[in-house]
Design a protein around this nucleic acid. Sequence first.
DNA 1: ACAATGATTGGCT
DNA 2: GCCAATCATTGTC
Length: 203
Amino acid sequence: MNFSFSTNKLPQEFYSRHVTDVAKDLLGKVLCRTVSGQILSGKIVEVEAYSKDGDEASHSFKEKNKRNSIMFEGGGILYVYLIYGIHFCMNIVTGDKNSGCAVLVRAVEPLTNIDIMMKNRFGEALPNDKSLAHATNGPAKLCKAFNVDLAQNGISLLSSEIYLTEGFEVSEDEIGNSKRVGISKSKELDWRFYLKGNRFVSK
DNA sequence: ACAATGATTGGCT
DNA sequence: GCCAATCATTGTC
């Protein structure tokens, strides 16, 4: 396949940095997910950073427990959790071991095997124009489209099952920055980053 | 032990 | 705009 973007896999060093730096740099990168030999992929267009330090909205703000333990395992792995009893959200763990930092992936723009994603989301592959726009424009929506659940919690982003590639160049003036969505504590932090004008951004 | 809450979504008014 | 779905975790009695 001939892609118009870089398919070089991001190295461990990318993830070992400060969480807000990684969050911003994740915009334009391509999330790849192998399912039954097929590679589902999407360009990351919206993220949020969470940290154990001074961020009461983060799962890691509390002591390490069964749910959040993956956040303490160091950068370069995936943290998946169940929310509202019915949905899953995926996060990219950053920093060193015990840093308790992760980036929530809130929205992606579908790139390859869109028909499989549509089937994962809606049970049918027909790429209706309206449904495509709502396929991956939310954290739990994209998990469903990419067939990600607790079975992927803690897996390495250097694996072939899930990984990120360099993807698209993003310049500073394309990036928007705001408060995070749907939280009640530490509301003041401007730790949401998104690509301005991209139609797959959730808000 | 029991009640409330949540990094959400989808259906209905 | 309102609200139910559904469960791990947390708060209260």
